[in-house]
């Protein structure tokens, strides 16, 4: 994700929601309708940084038998069709620790994962897993929050590669709506300290809010709003894909027109 005048679109879905086989089709829809990066949630039983929408998605995914191995299998199948769009895995540390860091990194790199975001691993706890990810040639994406000091952001820079995920609201995923002006002002403050592109996520629910935030960072991240479509149409994959495609297309248009103004 290079810095450019175009605002990139990062889309999140929970892998295995509503069931493992659906994810490949959903990834195709995301890629076809204008996503620049696909973030794939690795479901965890206790997703403490996520709001109810992604919690329920994780519960559905686990109930339908999704495991970290099945998530990696899905990426492998997707890579047989699409070699270009970056795939980032997002989740919590414990399932990765259960698989073993080295084992996880080796498999993830082999199937074509580009980066990994582990929500509950701040830079202070990142040494061990980061060494493995770097060895495997994978980017480690870190969160930066509205209350992160400049000192902390410099700390993040020691380990971060790929892009930095700016959490636009203090809260959980899918929660409060984002205040574009506030976010823009804060990002301006630390932008010169960061050489990496900045993705802005949490609380971006509609094409309008995506358009409003397009100027603040290099990418906009939308998750819960897409997962909500999956939940609503979980019994009809064809309709679900249609709705996702139309929503992502609108997001793409909103970002493009915002940048042209």
């Amino acid at each position: 994700m290079a810095k450019s005048s175009r605002c990139a679109l990062i889309t999140y879905v929970t892998a295995g929601d509503p069931e493992p086989d659906a994810t490949l089709s959903i990834m195709r829809s995301l890629a076809a309708s204008g996503a620049d990066v696909i973030e794939l949630g690795m479901p965890f039983s206790d997703p403490m940084a996520d709001g109810p929408i992604i919690q329920r998605a994780s519960e559905r995914a686990l109930k339908s038998g999704t495991t970290l191995i099945s998530v990696l299998d899905t990426v492998q199948k997707f890579r047989e069709e699409d070699l270009t769009i970056p795939v980032v895995l997002m989740g919590y540390l414990n399932p990765i620790e259960a698989m073993g860091y080295a084992n996880f990194v080796e498999k993830a790199a082999a199937v074509g994962v580009d980066g990994v975001l582990i929500v509950d691993v701040p830079p202070e706890e990142a040494d061990e897993i980061n060494t493995q990810l770097v060895t495997g040639g994978l980017d480690q994406i870190f969160l930066v929050a509205p209350n992160s000091s400049l000192e902390r952001i410099e700390n993040v820079c020691k380990f971060a590669s790929g892009f930095v995920y700016y959490v636009s609201v203090k809260g959980v995923t899918g929660g409060k709506s984002v205040d574009a002006e506030e976010v823009g002002a804060h990002i301006q403050q630390f932008r010169q300290r960061l050489s990496l592109p900045i993705g802005v996520g949490f609380g971006i629910k509609s094409p309008e809010s995506a358009g409003a935030i397009a100027g603040a960072g290099d990418a906009v991240i939308v998750g819960s709003a897409i997962v909500e479509i999956i939940e609503e149409h979980r019994l009809d994959l064809a309709v679900m894909q249609q709705r996702i495609e139309s929503f992502v297309t609108q997001l793409r248009l909103a970002l493009d027109s915002a940048r042209m103004v």
Binding site: M48, L143, V144, A145, R152, V156
Partner: peptide
């Protein structure tokens, strides 16, 4: 082991 928002 918490998300960045809780570190401060």
């Amino acid at each position: 082991f918490v998300a960045e928002t809780l570190m401060a």
